[in-house]
């Protein structure tokens, strides 16, 4: 088999997805046998103009991580789409917006103000903000436009596969590598993880116990054997796709939903609300009010990794 041409890119991301690829350890040698890497900013010195010069569809597979929150990221996403036969939305930021999409609870103007003017480490008396074009004595400098809205890769270009996770686990990455090596990729549109919920792969005891209070994580030390939700902790397992091996839950920490909604679930937050509603003991309106008050930061919790694909999408900015 001819060697595959592989590209990897990061948009609005932390670099964790790129490092996760290296976490496959010696298996990276299999990748090297299988593929020539033609673009990978974190590891190799290829520039945008090299990618631009590549013929269309000359890249066999592109693993694209990171959300889209600037004109540059959108441009590179479109460029890599036209250069690649198979485009993989890799990691939770590319698939659902991820942590960067929490910015949809604010606005670009508020972010700029905080980061460049208010932050105590700044000294910016003239309140200078980044501009897309600026003249300097030697010529002109340009910057991409920062968008108000953080988008997923698939909201910008068509995508063949989705690999969720913040970051995707080694097992899932090896699944992708093996599928490429044996030319056995699933049908287009597939999510490479479990089709069931995280609760299905969590081996904690579920006793169908009702709860009368929601706890914040620092308020109790949970029993390591019993379901966290049934102990009153907001565990997103029932609203989250399985495939991580219940990593957080195994260390007594409630799931925050980084694998996104399971197959057939339209909205992760709505699904979790229905799970909570089914186990919260209420005897009337005042209990419901109590429950609502116990939910601190529902939007930032239910959509911790999925604001871009949620029903909410973003906070509606106040008209000025």
């Amino acid at each position: 088999m001819a060697k595959l041409k592989l590209a990897l890119y990061w948009a609005a991301a932390c670099g964790g997805c790129d490092v996760a690829v290296l976490d496959i350890n010696e298996k990276i040698l299999d990748v090297a046998k299988l593929a020539d890497i033609v673009f990978w900013p974190i590891a190799l010195d290829f520039k945008y103009h090299h990618v631009e010069a590549m013929p269309d569809k000359s890249v066999d597979v592109c693993l694209f991580n990171g959300a889209i929150r600037s004109s540059e990221q959108e441009h590179i996403a479109k460029m890599l789409r036209s250069k690649s036969k198979v485009l993989v939305s890799f990691g939770s930021c590319a698939c659902f917006g991820g942590i960067p999409a929490l910015a949809n609870l604010t606005t670009r103007a508020e972010i700029m103000e905080r980061a460049y003017i208010e932050a105590p480490s700044n000294e910016n008396p003239n309140k200078t903000l980044p501009q897309t074009k600026v003249s300097v004595p030697e010529g002109e400098l340009t910057l991409p436009e920062l968008y108000d809205n953080v988008l997923t890769l698939a909201q910008v270009v068509p995508v063949e596969y989705f690999v969720p996770g913040c970051p995707p686990t080694v097992d899932l990455i090896l699944k992708v590598v093996n599928a490429l090596a044996t030319n056995s990729l699933p049908p287009v549109g597939a999510t490479i993880a479990s089709d069931k919920t995280l609760c299905d792969e969590c081996d904690r005891k579920k006793e169908k116990k009702m709860i009368s209070r929601i706890y914040r994580t620092h308020e109790i030390i949970p029993d390591p054997e019993r379901c966290l939700l049934e102990q009153g902790l907001l565990c997103m397992g029932s609203a989250t796709r399985g495939g991580c091996g219940a990593l957080c839950v195994k260390v007594n920490i409630p799931c925050r939903g980084c694998f996104g909604p399971p197959a057939g679930v339209f909205d992760q937050g709505a699904k979790l609300v229905s799970s909570i509603a089914s186990i919260y003991q209420t005897n009337g309106k005042q209990d419901i009010e109590k429950m609502v008050n116990e939910l601190v930061d529902p939007a930032g919790t239910f959509y911790r990794f999925g604001m871009s694909v949620s029903m909410l999408k973003r906070r509606i900015p106040q008209k000025t």
């Binding site: 964790g16 600037s70 960067p100 929490l102 910015a103 604010t106 972010i111 700029m112 920490i253």
Partner: peptide, 24 residues
Amino acid sequence: PELRGFEKFCEGRPVEELPRIVPR
């Protein structure tokens, strides 16, 4: 050429959740 805005979007998140947000 990049800004994600942690400076702003961490505001309003419960403090006990920040150790799971800022590693990103």
